[in-house]
């Protein structure tokens, strides 16, 4: 996975600079460790390190320990921390930045199915130009836990019966153009 916005890690680039280089990540140095983010987070109880600790770990250069944790993968993008942060840090954007770096560096944890779910989503969106929810979910379960599909079956079936689960994907006409755009983006990333 290449990425132009996230600079490739070079020995001289610190972890905090790497995070700062991502749009939305700049303000991390202003953190006063007040804990408003953790107190506001609806999922913090599941994180290996809480949102406040995550920010401290970026500043403490605990790179691999943080990137291989499950922490940022539990961010549901509710943005409560972002609107409440008294220092205008954008913790939600920082969590997304950490997810990007973890995937790029192959450090994303296997203790959460979220990294695989996100990758299945991206593959579906790229290929068809639109997300095909059924295909994406089947792929997710096959790659993680096929037994979880059994638990999900009643939900899928009721969506199907209520005409909310098409059996065929929707595709855009401009798939060729979209592919050319994304290929070019990847090439630009590779040049850096």
């Amino acid at each position: 996975m290449t990425n132009t916005i996230v600079k490739a890690p070079a020995a001289e680039v610190s972890f905090i600079d790497e995070v700062c280089s991502i749009p939305g990540g700049e303000a991390i140095r202003s953190c006063i460790q007040c804990g408003m983010c953790t107190g506001s987070c609806p999922t913090a109880s599941r994180w290996d390190y809480t949102p406040r600790q995550v920010i401290a770990m970026v500043r403490g250069e605990l790179r691999d320990e943080l990137l291989s944790s499950n922490s940022m993968w539990f961010c549901a993008s509710c943005y409560t921390c972002t609107v409440r942060c008294p220092r205008d840090i954008k913790p939600t954007d920082i969590m997304h930045a950490l997810e990007i770096i973890a995937i790029r560096d192959g450090l994303s944890t296997k203790r959460s199915r979220t990294p695989v779910m996100y990758k299945c989503f991206v593959d579906s969106a790229k290929g068809n130009g639109r997300v095909y929810e059924l295909g994406m979910m089947l792929k997710l379960f096959l790659q993680t836990n096929p037994f979880a599909a059994l638990k999900m079956a009643p939900v899928g079936l009721s969506l199907l019966l209520h005409k909310r689960m098409p059996l065929r994907p929707s595709r855009i006409k401009g798939r060729g153009e979209l592919k050319a755009i994304l290929d070019k983006a990847r090439a630009l990333g590779g040049a850096k």
Binding site: H96, I100, I103, Y118, A185, R186, L188
Partner: peptide, 10 residues
């Protein structure tokens, strides 16, 4: 949000 958690430019 999933795409923005995998590759920012794309």
């Amino acid at each position: 949000s999933p795409y923005g958690s995998v590759d920012k430019l794309e």
